[in-house]
């Protein structure tokens, strides 16, 4: 097994990390960079709990190899709030009561932020579509969908 040194910008910070060839981005974030807000729910690209932004696009970080992100930009849940201010999607999910156990929440919020970045005023169908890969077993989703719509209205 080979090891590689990669340079990556994570939440605006330049990081140099030594990773093994088979290490996933998910493991690199959690184990090498101590960014444990990104969750491991299935390690198979099926539940969305590990969603992060790779150059602004949402990806399942369990399906990306760490070596692939050399020279790229990553945003995790820890990078959503700026200067101590919550992102609007974080504020509205609190207001709408869209958080229960919280395990899907980081991935859900990243998918929501990525959607609003590429489409600031999505229709309900577009919100549903953007979150369809993020499984939640607690909330029944509707409050989360409403929170993204509310965030769009306010931004």
């Amino acid at each position: 097994m080979g090891f590689h040194q990669i340079s990556v910008k994570v939440n605006g910070n330049d990081e140099v990390v030594t990773v093994s060839s088979n290490m996933t981005l998910l493991r690199m974030l959690r184990e090498s960079l101590a960014l444990t807000g990104t969750k491991n729910g299935c390690a198979a690209g099926e539940c969305g709990a590990c969603t992060v932004m790779l150059n602004g696009e949402p990806v399942n970080s369990c399906m990306v190899l760490a070596v692939e992100v050399d020279g790229q930009e990553i945003t995790t849940i820890e990078g959503l709030a700026k200067d101590g201010q919550l992102d609007i999607v974080q504020k509205t999910i609190i207001e709408k009561g869209g958080v229960q156990c919280g395990f899907c929440t980081p991935g859900m919020l990243i998918s929501a932020r990525a959607l609003l970045n590429r489409n600031p005023h999505p229709t309900e169908e577009q919100v549903v579509e953007a979150l369809v890969g993020n499984l939640c077993r607690c909330t029944g989703y509707s409050r989360i969908i409403e929170s993204v719509q509310a965030a769009a209205e306010r931004s």
Binding site: T36, Q90, F103
Partner: peptide
């Protein structure tokens, strides 16, 4: 009232068992 645990949970700061070093 607003849930007690939401700030931790929306920022990724909430610690679950797998997050303990």
């Amino acid at each position: 009232v607003q849930r007690l645990d939401v700030m931790e949970k929306v920022t990724g700061a909430a610690h679950y068992t797998d997050d303990i070093p």
